[in-house]
């Protein structure tokens, strides 16, 4: 079945079909939520919330955008709201997780990490994630949708209900903020681009 057919069947209340849609899309939604929050439990909660909202609001999905774009929107909203609620708890609204190197998933650096150290591959990822954490949720989401989820400007605009121009300038600002953080923390010694 095509995605459209799956959605239409799910709109009739078919949970089995909806399960297929979940399976097809959970990876990208979880990825966004994880990179937005830096925490697997929060990411799972927010992913669940996004899909539950999709299930409840299926009748509202008119098919003007792709189903995944709509899901991204639900997930973005959930993440932004979550991060706003968490905002007051710490400057970095993320929690640390300890993982070994083999199981590494762009973890946050621990608080004793020294910014003077030369970055290895793992540390550069940590620096990146730490930098992402300093961005506002709105900047973080556009940057992630572009860089890690690979959406185009138009898709992001559609997903977030923004103008193309706003997406373009917001991504540029997000990059500049990230660059500034890495420069200030002395971590901008990432490997040169492969092109």
């Amino acid at each position: 079945m095509t995605e459209q057919e799956l959605v239409q069947a799910a709109q009739q209340g078919d949970q089995g079909v909806f399960s297929q849609l979940v399976e097809q899309n959970q990876g990208k939604i979880y990825s966004l939520c994880y990179r937005m929050t830096g925490n697997s439990e929060d990411a799972a909660d927010l992913t669940q919330e996004a899909f539950l909202n999709a299930w409840r609001g299926l009748s509202k999905f008119g098919g003007q955008s792709s189903f995944s774009t709509w899901l991204y929107r639900l997930a973005s909203n959930a993440c932004i709201d979550f991060l706003r609620r968490e905002k007051r708890r710490s400057a970095l609204s993320m929690t640390l997780e300890s993982k070994d190197e083999d199981d590494h998933q762009a973890d946050l650096p621990d608080e004793r990490w020294s910014p003077e150290r030369e970055l290895e591959r793992k540390e550069s990822r940590q620096a990146l994630q730490a930098g992402l954490a300093t961005l506002s949720p709105e900047h973080r989401e556009v940057l992630l949708l572009r860089e890690t989820e690979g959406l185009s400007y138009q898709e992001i605009a559609r997903c977030l209900g923004l103008e193309d121009g706003t997406v373009k300038s917001r991504i540029a600002r997000a990059r500049m903020s990230l660059r500034e953080f890495l420069l200030k923390s002395g971590n901008f010694s990432l490997p040169p681009p492969s092109n």
Binding site: Q26, G27, Y30, S31, Y34, R35, S40, A43, A44, D103, H104, Q105, A106, S124, R125, L128, L143, E147, T148, R175, L178, R179, L182, F188, L190, P191, P192, P193, S194, N195
Partner: peptide, 17 residues
Amino acid sequence: LSVLHAALSDLPPVEVP
């Protein structure tokens, strides 16, 4: 910015629980 762009794009895929 090119370095940043490449590094972000190069983040490993997130493993879904």
